[in-house]
């Protein structure tokens, strides 16, 4: 038997679709595998009793060799008591060398639980993964200050990493997986957490990950009517609004609008950064954008180095001008 190379946590959406980040991790694992003495890639699915054929085929088509399924009707939805513990037991049994998990809220919970139980290292929010000459996992992430990048290694096994959605690209291939059911005694797991109620969140904001145009505001826009101007330009352009971590921490945007290493990774056709300095953690989320425009008053701001077009000056004035001219321009055209 091939030793288990990579184990991936197969997070499912509430409609039982495979979360995109899982496919992306599979594609990456498949690519790494070529350097990694061709060990196998397993995905662990945890859910209700149902037919998993379609999901198994889909996971196979992204490079999974084997799908390990634990199912029980008590596992229909993600359960904090069960899912992390079950994933840990699977990891314990299969002894993978590498465990990859999407850096979703659920994934982070499963990852921390599993890493502590296995007493091993976990690198969060990686922006790249590689295999060293010694067959170790090399996890890359921006580091303090945001001007530098760090390569992180792990002395123990398994080596664990989480990665945000859209850092990698998913790609389907000619490949298929076989499935394997794994029984775990759920009755033995003590329930300490109960859900009392859940309310669906609604957001009127356009999704930054799917919009063709994204305008994001940073610290520079975190005063006066900075974000009002950004929203009003975005409205005219049919763009989504995002922001830096500073903008989130100051309450100008929601967490779901934060762009960067610990927020969303985006790849719109056009990205406009308004009053954002361009720290590495922010750049990590925008690198794959088509065209990048930077608006900043500091001509030395790092963001200009990552941009295709730039304009130096006061963002309030520039936005005002863009908003006004956007309309006149349109009228002229009509």
């Amino acid at each position: 038997m091939k030793s288990c190379g990579v184990l991936i946590y197969g997070e499912l959406t509430s409609e039982y679709h495979i979360r995109t980040v899982v496919k992306q991790l599979l594609t990456k694992a498949y690519e790494l595998n070529e350097k990694f003495e061709n060990k196998d890639i397993k995905v662990c699915l945890i859910g209700e009793r149902r037919n998993y054929d379609e999901l198994i085929n889909e996971l196979g088509s992204y490079g999974a060799d084997e799908v390990i399924i634990t199912c029980d009707d008590r596992l229909k939805h993600y359960d904090k008591n069960y899912h992390p513990e079950i994933f840990y037991q699977i990891a314990q049994k299969y002894q993978p060398e590498i465990i990859l998990i999407g850096a979703t809220l659920q994934g982070k919970e499963v990852a921390s639980y599993c890493a502590s139980k296995l007493n091993t290292g976990l690198t969060a929010d990686c922006t790249n993964l590689n295999i060293t000459e010694n067959n170790r996992l090399l996890s890359t992430r921006p580091t303090f200050g945001g001007q530098l990048t760090a390569d992180i290694l792990c002395k123990t096994l398994p080596q664990m990493a989480t990665v945000q959605e859209n850092i990698f690209k998913e790609q389907q291939i000619e490949h298929s997986a076989f499935a394997h059911f794994e029984w775990i005694n759920i009755d033995e797991i003590e329930r300490k957490i109960e859900i009392i109620n859940a309310i669906k969140k609604t957001s009127e904001n356009k999704d930054v990950t799917t919009s063709d145009i994204v305008i994001a505001g940073g610290m520079g826009a975190c005063k006066d009517n900075g974000f009002e101007l950004i929203y009003s330009l975005a409205h005219k352009m049919n763009a989504a609004v995002g922001g830096s971590r500073e903008a989130f921490e100051r309450g100008y945007i929601e967490k779901s609008q934060q762009i960067g290493q610990t927020g969303k990774t985006i790849s719109p056709k056009l990205y406009i950064a308004v009053g954002i300095s361009g720290a590495n953690q922010h750049i990590a989320g925008i690198k794959n954008s088509g065209k990048i425009i930077a608006i900043n008053k500091d001509e030395n701001a790092p963001i200009f180095k990552y941009a295709d077009y730039g304009i130096t000056g006061d963002l309030f004035k520039i936005l005002d001008e863009l908003i006004t001219k956007f309309d006149t321009n349109k009228e002229e055209k009509q």
């Binding site: 390569d151 992180i152 352009m237 425009i293 941009a307 863009l322 956007f326």
Partner: peptide, 28 residues
């Protein structure tokens, strides 16, 4: 278990063209 093996600058720069607002609007 984890340790930093290397710290470096990671630069994937683009060529930035500086514009005025009208030119920028055309690009948009």
């Amino acid at each position: 278990p984890t340790y930093v093996s290397k710290v470096y600058r990671h630069d994937e720069y683009r060529n930035c063209l500086m514009l005025n607002t009208d030119e920028l609007l055309n690009k948009i």
